[in-house]
Design a protein around this nucleic acid. Structure first.
Ligand SMILES: [Zn+2]
Ligand SMILES: [Zn+2]
Ligand SMILES: [Zn+2]
Ligand SMILES: [Zn+2]
Lengths: 136, 136
DNA sequence: CTTGACCTTGGTGTGTACTCTAAGGTTTAT
DNA sequence: ATAAACCTTAGAGTACACACCAAGGTCAAG
């Protein structure tokens, strides 16, 4: 299967596939005589793995690590895999916490403002940002 | 006040200040004879505004909009300011929702894996990513 | 036998918020 | 007078995950 059809089946762009190849996430096993990439069943499976890993939040770099483990499973332990997963989960949790603080602050600010059409001279959002320290 | 002292007071780098100036977030009013930036009280207030806005999650571009409103308050309405705030809040909420889905999926994955030292041949995390479709 | 759809490589551009470098000028203290 | 510590500019580099482009080769249909 050539790159265009393969990309269509998976709902990604050919650019994405070439990008993944360049970054060692997925290299088609063979090339046609004309030098065209030739994707097969194994490539399909691997791309699905990659897309699923993306869907749960892994970055491409992390996915590369997972693939390296997957390729040589007997040389790696469950521990390593779980570690990667837990580290990622905790990182995500931190980011959620930060964004939740943002959300809270923004809600507080929004609630203070009347949102009317009058000039913003006394807008509570602006005065709060001007005056108050230590807005968590 | 020269840039070094000013930066120290605020806990930012001189690079950051020059960056903000280049992007029209904060320009010191005057220069010394030698061409050095000269920051005053007004600059201090404005930087505090910027840092507070950053602390609640606004991007520098959004802060620039806020500053433009702040400079000409009578030409803008409370409505505009509240809109910016609400839009940002909703964007943050979306991102939180996405990350929460990631967190959920990662937790499910992690819980399936024993995390032991044995080879990863049968690791549930890997097999799940390999086999299952539609992991939300 | 030509048109159009596909493929190739290599390189550049996007957004965010800086950080770092090079090459040089200024100020302050000793 | 000279060294340390500051300042100036313009420009490049960082992370991430692609998107887009140019210039050209290949393949199937009409
Ligand atoms: Zn109002
Ligand atoms: Zn208001
Ligand atoms: Zn196990
Ligand atoms: Zn496992």
């Amino acid at each position: 299967m050539k790159i265009g059809e393969f990309a269509n089946q998976l709902g990604v762009s050919t650019d994405t596939l070439r990008y993944y190849e360049k970054h060692n996430l997925l290299t088609p096993l063979t090339r046609t005589e004309a030098g065209y990439r030739d994707y097969g069943e194994a490539s399909l499976k691997q791309m699905k793995f990659i897309l699923r890993a993306k869907n749960v939040g892994f970055s491409l770099l992390e996915i590369k690590e997972l693939l390296q483990i997957k390729f040589k499973k007997h040389q790696h332990s469950c521990h390593e895999v779980k570690d990667l997963t837990i580290q990622k989960r905790d990182l995500v949790a931190e980011r959620i916490a930060e964004l939740t603080r943002f959300h809270q602050s923004l809600s507080v600010l929004a609630d203070k403002c009347c949102g009317g059409q009058e000039p913003a001279d006394n807008c509570s959002i602006l005065t709060t940002l001007e005056d108050i320290d230590g807005l968590t």
